[in-house]
Amino acid sequence: MDVDATHTTVLLALEHQPSADLLGDRLRRAGLEVPRVEDGEAAHERIQETDIDVVVAQVRLPGRTGLELLRSLPPMCPPVVLLGRRGNDDEIVRAFEMGAAEFITRPFAPRVAVARIQRCLQFRAAARPSSVPEALSTE
């Protein structure tokens, strides 16, 4: 598969600093571009203005929550991975009903969380066969 990691972008819409550090670092080490915004409005603008491959959004995001962000995106938008706290099954079900591609609960194992994001990138790459980074291709 074509290797061009610098053209693969994962937008982190995360207010929670440790989550952003942990996920952002792993994704950057895999060669991805990982811009970060800290509120839902900024995330919405960024998705509309730039070419984003996957969005990782916190459920409890200021400005526009992760679920509101998901609802506001058109059907051809990038897949959205939501990050929420463990123990709220209703929220997880609602997220999937609204079209979330994945749901990661906190606390998470960074390796597993990145594997879930990786899966979304692969689906995205399959739907739009331009590029997927070698580091994220199936081992």
């Binding site: 929670h16 989550s19 942990l22 606390p107 194992a109 390796r111």
Partner: peptide, 8 residues
């Protein structure tokens, strides 16, 4: 409080 498993 953010991670579990090996990272923790």
């Amino acid at each position: 409080t953010t991670v579990r498993g090996e990272a923790l």
